[in-house]
Amino acid sequence: MLIAGSSIGEIKNLKTRLSAAFKMKDLGPAKQILGMKISWDRSAGTLNLPQELYIEKVLSRFRVNDAKPTVGSLMYAMVCTRPDIAHVVGVVSRYMANPGKEHWEAVKWLLRYLRGTSSTSLCFGKGNVTLQGFVDADLGGDVDSSKSTSGYIYTIGGTVVSWMSRLQKCVSLSSTEAE
């Protein structure tokens, strides 16, 4: 397994061993993965994973009042590189079986937010590899069910690597229970 700090020799050795076992070509450094552009800044020691092109496609595709496929497209962005929209995507997705006008308004608000932040990306850099985790919950924040929402976010070196925002399964009777 390659990890940060692997030498070029180790990487070349791995490529040689893989090409002996499998038919493969070395196409050079990766430029894209799962529709995300990979942006390297070797002098700064950073790797960025923006979804700007994907978000622009979603924005241009959904200029119609059809919230269901729009929310599915927003979920893909959220799962890959946009933890900042996890909560609102979770909220609007609860109503996709029978969306109302206010739900579509929330989706349009989210699309406008993404328009202004489409260049936001996860940025991985060398150096600090401290793992941090943050967890929180509200108390009865869902107006329809009085259920609480829990969320967490984990970072390594200040860059988000795992996140979640989810409605709890039962109604909490106290903030202690919600937490």
Rank of each mutant, 00 (worst) to 15 (best):
P50S: 13
A20K: 14
D66S: 10
C80R: 02
M75T: 06
D138K: 02
Y54L: 10
G151R: 03
V129K: 09
D138M: 00
G35H: 09
K147F: 04
Q32N: 12
L18F: 14
Y152H: 12
W40I: 11
S146Y: 09
K108W: 03
S146R: 15
D84T: 06
R112Q: 14
V58W: 01
G45H: 10
E177K: 10
K31R: 13
S93Q: 05
V171R: 09
L74T: 00
K23V: 13
L27G: 11
T155Y: 00
W163G: 02
Y154S: 13
K12L: 13
R63Q: 15
T149R: 01
M78F: 01
M75H: 08
K25A: 12
W109E: 14
Q51H: 07
I3M: 07
G5E: 09
D144K: 06
S150C: 09
A67C: 14
L74W: 02
V135T: 15
G158E: 11
A44C: 07
S121K: 12
V171M: 05
G141D: 03
V58L: 15
H103C: 12
G100A: 10
L53V: 08
V171E: 03
G127D: 11
G35I: 11
G45R: 08
K108R: 14
K25V: 13
A86P: 01
G5Y: 07
K126P: 00
A106P: 02
P83N: 06
A77C: 12
G35S: 10
S60E: 15
D136K: 05
Y154C: 15
G140K: 07
D138A: 01
E102K: 13
A77K: 00
S6C: 15
P99Q: 08
D142H: 08
A44G: 09
T149K: 01
I38E: 04
V71R: 01
V88H: 01
R17Y: 07
E56Y: 06
R112A: 13
I33H: 08
K169M: 06
S93I: 07
A4M: 08
S165C: 09
A21C: 12
A20N: 13
R63D: 12
G45Y: 08
L49W: 05
K169R: 13
H103N: 12
V58A: 03
S165N: 05
N98W: 04
A67M: 09
I55G: 01
G72A: 11
L49N: 10
L14S: 09
K101F: 11
V64P: 00
S145P: 03
S175H: 06
S175V: 11
F22T: 06
G5T: 08
T155M: 14
L2I: 14
L139Q: 04
